[in-house]
Nucleic acid binder design. Structure first.
Lengths: 197, 197
DNA sequence: GTCTATATCTTGATAGAC
DNA sequence: GTCTATCAAGATATAGAC
């Protein structure tokens, strides 16, 4: 969950490059040479920082999880309604899709689960659990304050909401219709909103 | 949308093998040699039936779309409620996941969109449109007969429902919790059900 | 820490015999 | 239609010089 030793400058660059390459083309779709070209070193040099491709991917997901968790903390720290928090959560996904032109790293990697080294997949699964935990707390708060329908199963809704966003992101990117993502987010929120006009 | 000439026996075998391999490991994760080993020929022989990997993938998606459309026709032909139709739709996904231990071919391929030949990606996008069209008609019928909440945006709900199932399938498979998929389907239906007890 | 050089393997694809 | 043989390219990874 937490970082070990602080990474060197180059190691961070390599990690960032690998992360963004995987968000674009997946684990099977990027190579050490791709990373090397982006960072400006030779592919053999990467092995000094990350011995194997699995090590690199695992570290990239770990750093992704940390960065994502910080974004969630930022949202939690704001004094806004649960509904607004879900909206801001969706904005993270939308920003990744439209500004960085990337998919969710763990959405991509999970779809390649059968090709991943075991410890990489476990990191990916850890990401999903991070999201489930944060989302279910927000939904719970929304039910308590009366803005969300009280009949919904909180834990399951967290997973359903996450699934919808991950799926919509993949479909939106493939079909090149980014609006699919934010419209899906809006509808998912609308479906549990008990304060509809 | 329709098949051209009928495929030879071996071509069908190759197609089926490629389809199931891609449902397991994706476009970047399967090779001609994998297919050859399954079918019992040499990898060079595949090129006789499908000149390039892109041709093979495109044909596999086309055949997948056809088979899926037949399943949808079967559901439509039954005299069951819109709610039951959505449930049966979810059963298709669940069956793929738990019996064949596979993901949705187009969910996997869409997540690799940036690695796909252009015409393969267009076939994948066509699949999503097939699903959107069928699902929206079912939802429309459910609104008309009063079982689904009338406030929902029909076209968008079709996409949201599909997104949720695709996302849940990927997450369920990676985390090895297949129940995530059917619970997500159930909740998605429950969220628009207007006849709740 | 990064390099060159290299080993080893796998890939998609082609040529030509049968 | 399928084979053998082969290719050129790309992959991960290692050894050892600098």
């Amino acid at each position: 969950m937490t970082s070990q030793e602080p990474l060197s400058q180059k190691a961070s660059e390599i990690l960032g490059s690998a992360q963004s390459l995987m968000q674009d083309k997946g684990y099977n779709g990027f190579s050490f040479r791709d990373v090397a070209a982006q960072v400006g070193i030779k592919s053999a040099s990467i092995h000094y920082h990350f011995p194997t491709k699995g090590d690199l991917a695992k570290a990239a997901v770990g750093s992704y999880r940390e960065a994502f968790s910080k974004l969630l903390e930022d949202i939690s720290a704001q004094n806004i309604t649960p509904r607004s928090q879900l909206q801001k959560y969706g904005d993270i996904f939308m920003d990744t899709l439209t500004v960085k032109h990337n998919a969710c790293l763990c959405g991509i990697l999970a779809s390649e689960a059968e090709s991943l080294p075991e410890d990489v997949r476990h990191q990916v699964d850890g990401f999903f659990d991070d999201q489930r935990a944060w989302l279910s707390a927000v939904v719970e708060a929304g039910i308590k304050d009366g803005t969300f329908r009280s009949v919904i199963a909180t834990q399951q809704y967290a997973i359903t909401f996450l699934s919808a966003l991950e799926g919509a992101m993949i479909i939106a990117r493939s079909t090149q219709k980014p609006e699919i993502l934010n419209q899906t987010t809006d509808q998912m929120i609308g479906l549990i909103d008990d304060t509809a006009d």
